[in-house]
């Protein structure tokens, strides 16, 4: 796919395969149709003395050509869907029984991530204790996960629609206020990846940046020990995130 999809660091690798398969199928049909358009336009340019042929597409054979092309396209589309349904079911329907629990709370223009760890709940968010608001890259709240175990996230919103989107993991799920949505992913490659709100949620929709930090398992335990000990689970505000001038 022109090599432009960002690297997929999660376990949903088949999604990339599906998208490339669609592009190949659809690209073939596009080239065929364009070849017909350009070909017919050039082949049948008006030449003096040559009359047009009276083809009104009302005979069985002519209509057969048209319906044949469309039947072939539809057959390819159903092949795409046959690959699509199992993927969709595993991602959206089969939520694994055990895995790291993460609570994602979206509110008008920030994220609050609550990690359920051995040392209790660790919350990371963008507002610091003074309630000031920051939007710069390093101020973005971070969601900490580890490789090798599935992460089960539950999505809540305080006010309006938001959407939990991590491009690197191919994860997108809208968050509806009043409902708690559950989803899962499993990260494979350690690193820091972008996390964004994909549903318009007002003036600060462009400031709702977040980061997904993928640790190796022991690195994750170090993080939990460092954060877990100092911030007991009862404290509502966990890691103090450095902040910049208010927006």
């Amino acid at each position: 796919m022109w090599g432009t999809l960002p690297e997929n660091v999660g376990t949903f690798q088949d999604l990339d395969g599906l998208m490339e398969f669609i592009t190949v199928v659809v690209g073939l049909w596009f080239l065929a149709a364009m070849a017909m358009i350009i070909g017919f336009s050039l082949m049948f340019k008006a030449k003096p003395g040559v009359k047009a042929q009276y083809i009104a597409g009302n005979t069985g054979k002519q209509v057969g050509v048209l319906l044949g092309i469309v039947a072939a396209i539809t057959m390819f589309d159903f092949m795409i869907d046959i690959r699509n349904v199992p993927l969709w079911n595993t991602i959206k329907m089969q939520i694994p029984a055990e895995g790291d629990q993460v609570g994602v709370l979206a509110k008008q223009w920030t994220w609050v991530f609550t990690h359920k760890t051995k040392a209790g709940n660790v919350t990371t968010e963008m507002f610091n204790d003074a309630g000031e608001y920051s939007d710069s890259a390093n101020g973005a709240p971070k969601l900490h996960v580890r490789t090798g175990t599935k992460t089960i996230y539950s999505l809540n919103s305080e006010d309006v629609l938001h959407s939990f989107k991590i491009n690197a993991l191919r994860v997108t799920m809208d968050i509806i206020p009043g409902r708690t949505y559950k989803g899962w992913f499993e990260a494979v490659k350690p690193g820091t990846y972008d996390l964004a709100c994909a549903e318009i949620c007002g003036r600060g929709h462009g400031d709702m940046a977040g980061r997904l930090v993928v640790h190796t398992p022991d690195d994750y335990d170090k993080w939990v020990k460092a954060k877990g000990v100092t911030k007991a689970d009862s404290a509502p505000k966990g890691v103090v995130v450095a902040h910049n001038a208010a927006h």
Binding site: A33, M36, A52, I55, V65, T74
Partner: peptide, 25 residues
């Protein structure tokens, strides 16, 4: 996917309408 069938028919009908014509651009 089913609704892409009528579009296939309409678009290819438009394309096939060029076949055998004497086209002035």
């Amino acid at each position: 996917i089913i609704i892409s069938i009528p579009f296939g028919v309409m678009l290819f009908a438009l394309i096939l309408s060029l076949y055998g014509g004497s086209i002035r651009f």
